[in-house]
Write a protein that binds this DNA or RNA. Structure first.
Lengths: 149, 149
DNA sequence: GCAGACAATATGCACATGCTTATTGTCTGT
DNA sequence: ACAGACAATAAGCATGTGCATATTGTCTGC
């Protein structure tokens, strides 16, 4: 009696998404290393490239990092002139965070390398599937976690 | 000069896949806990449900686990009668691993709960997108990691 | 029969992560 | 001016993971 009684014939989503994520991150890591970036540092540059952020806690939150552990990443990025971290004149407790032109250049270079890898990967798919996949991935990855229940 | 020069207008795949994976695993965890299963224990049951496995190292490998750390998971599953671990009569170094009927029942119950959560999630998508997404996810997650370069 | 290979197991190190607590400087409401 | 809140920072703890090593029992080729 092989699974005729309602078991959907596919692996669990997490059982597929997890190895894919692992493989993607493993493929990104060496590309980022060529640019001297850790995964977290890259995540920070990506986030700041969208728009400046007003507090480090907000930045950490928005990239899913720990606000205490991200400090050394910011120290390093600032030291290399890739981000700016200036005290808010209106509230000297908070640090205004923004990417520098140099940081933007590095981010672009790293992302271009990653895109080449990704497009090579996606090129094996039919165009329709590729587009649907990216579209759905965008939607699902942006859902707040309360929606997963 | 805002990104008119070829930068694809979407987040990196890993930047979408990682939060999705996290959210899916976070949603699975409480469901598995109701059945007294850890993520690794569930992965073992899933894998053994396909077909028996001849060595523990092969099992660990095939679910992406560490062969030394999986031992206690197998101990526990065996203790609960969910898997069988018998010495291979032909080579007493190796343990033949298989799921028991009891293990299959538990696996089915857990997976049914997970499927309900997943279908609730996917039900917000157009049918075409949903199918394409699952199809692509299957293909990409099954690719050997050498293909990611 | 013995050396070398191999499976399962135990153990330890290094490292990253999530979480908590404490300190310091700064702001805000009263 | 002062108490309480808050941001950044440092430091600690428990956990989990990848990686390496060592031991024991067993097999295989010579």
């Amino acid at each position: 009696m092989p699974k005729l009684w309602g078991m959907p014939d596919r692996p669990d989503l997490a059982a597929m998404a997890a190895p894919l994520t692992r493989a993607l991150m493993a493929a990104e890591t060496p590309i980022l290393r060529e640019h001297g970036l850790s995964m977290w540092a890259y995540a920070v540059l990506l986030r700041l490239d969208e728009r400046p952020v007003r507090t480090q806690a907000a930045l950490a939150e928005s990239i899913g990092a720990d606000k205490t552990r991200i400090i050394s990443v910011l120290d390093e990025l600032q030291r290399r002139g890739l981000i700016e971290r200036s005290p808010d004149p209106a509230d000297r407790r908070v640090r205004l965070l923004s990417i520098t032109p140099e940081g933007r250049r590095l981010r672009d270079a790293a992302q271009a390398g990653i895109r080449r890898m990704e497009e090579r990967l996606l090129s094996r798919l039919p165009d329709d599937d590729k587009e649907a996949f990216v579209r759905v991935l965008r939607v699902l990855s942006a859902l707040p976690s309360q929606e997963f229940r």
